[in-house]
């Protein structure tokens, strides 16, 4: 697999251009993990939320490469670390923009799949 060059701080690329052509390369376990977490947060009946959450992660996977998704989620999670280490993440240039990208990506996929906004 080709590692994309969108490193954390090079990820501004990701913002400047539409998201890189997706290769639908999310591993099964990443999709399942998302679905489980998404279902846990959903207030709908399990079957409904399972379909909607699966739809959502498939919609995300159609838009972004898995490695980019991992980078975005790492930044989004990284800023929650307390202390100096989190400081590195919070200080990251364009970090907030990346988190915004991450949120928007999820929001539009959720909308598409009839999931309530978070």
């Amino acid at each position: 697999m080709i590692m994309i060059r969108s490193t954390a701080f090079g990820m501004t690329l990701l913002l400047a251009t539409p998201l890189a052509a997706a290769t639908n390369d999310f591993p099964t376990r990443a999709r399942v993990e998302f679905v489980l977490g998404c279902m846990q947060q959903s207030k709908e009946a399990p079957a409904a939320s399972m379909y909607k959450c699966s739809c959502t992660i498939d919609a995300i996977a159609a838009k972004v490469r898995y490695s980019e998704w991992v980078d975005l989620s790492t930044v989004a999670n990284g800023i929650t670390i307390a202390g100096e280490r989190g400081g590195v993440m919070r200080d990251m240039k364009d970090g907030r923009k990346l988190i915004d990208t991450y949120r928007k990506l999820q929001e539009s996929a959720r909308k598409q799949c009839f999931l309530q906004p978070q």
Binding site: F34, L36, G37, Q41, N77, I79, T80, G86, Y102
Partner: peptide, 14 residues
């Protein structure tokens, strides 16, 4: 486990 949520990253549950 680093701080906030794993997996889907949103802040709920914190």
């Amino acid at each position: 486990g680093i701080g906030g949520w794993a997996g889907i990253g949103m802040a709920a549950g914190l």
